[in-house]
Amino acid sequence: MANVLEVKPDLAQAQCAEVGASKFCPGCGHGTILKTLAQVIDELNLNERAVFGCDIGCSLLSWNYMNIDTVQTHHGRTTPVIYGVTRANPGTVGIAYMGDGGGLAIGSQHLVNASVRGENMLILLANNTNYGMTGGQMSPTTMPGQVTETTPYGRDCSITGKPAKGAEMIAAIADPEKSYVARSTMGNVRGLKKVLKAALENVANGGFSFVEVLSVCPNNWRTNNIKTLERLKEMEEFFEVKEFITPAKKEEV
């Protein structure tokens, strides 16, 4: 028999303990991102105020991950549902969680309009450069030359165009007075935590935040542990990891 341990895992208050292991594949980046998000919610004491919305795609498997109010929405419509919630109940901290398909493909209209209007919410976009749940097809963010199910010889940019860069796009159109726009990576958990903390603080003060997190998909990339992290390094070089707009720094100047 396996021995029962006297200690408990290091779960945050905002994480649901009774469901046991999460529903994601082994090595999935969603686990790291959501774990860090839950820790940040605990640190900022937002457990009562936060509302979590998840999209269709792999990100919907987070429907029972968080121990806070959760709503599961239509594909790409997490953004309007969450800003509807925050408009109806001022003071709520809305978190819209989506993948690159839900945010930059089918949901890009809502993403653009929400960021132009500066809605009071956090949009958290996990970018793993393919459509994970349906078997790893090409997505808007697939890197040039990357092999996916629908680009078996590598993505050819002369036919399919260039990859979408979400954080740059939002930084160009968002209101610089009260927006926080950044790109982070799950390869650097401490950096991710810092970015999520700044983003949630901005939302709690009434601003708009957009964070794109570079994530991994070992199952559909068909990579082992070491090659997964090598691919993540390539992504960090292609997609620039930095803070694009920070409202707090402008106030100091």
């Binding site: 396996a2 341990l5 200690v7 895992p9 046991g20 292991a21 594949c25 082994p26 090595g27 999935c28 070992p218 082992n224 542990n225 070491i226 997964t228 992290l229």
Partner: peptide, 17 residues
């Protein structure tokens, strides 16, 4: 050092990191 085997999915990211 503790490991909870009903949570481990053997992704071995810890081995690489």
């Amino acid at each position: 050092w503790y490991l909870f085997n009903k949570l481990c999915k053997s992704c071995y990211l810890c081995v690489a990191k």
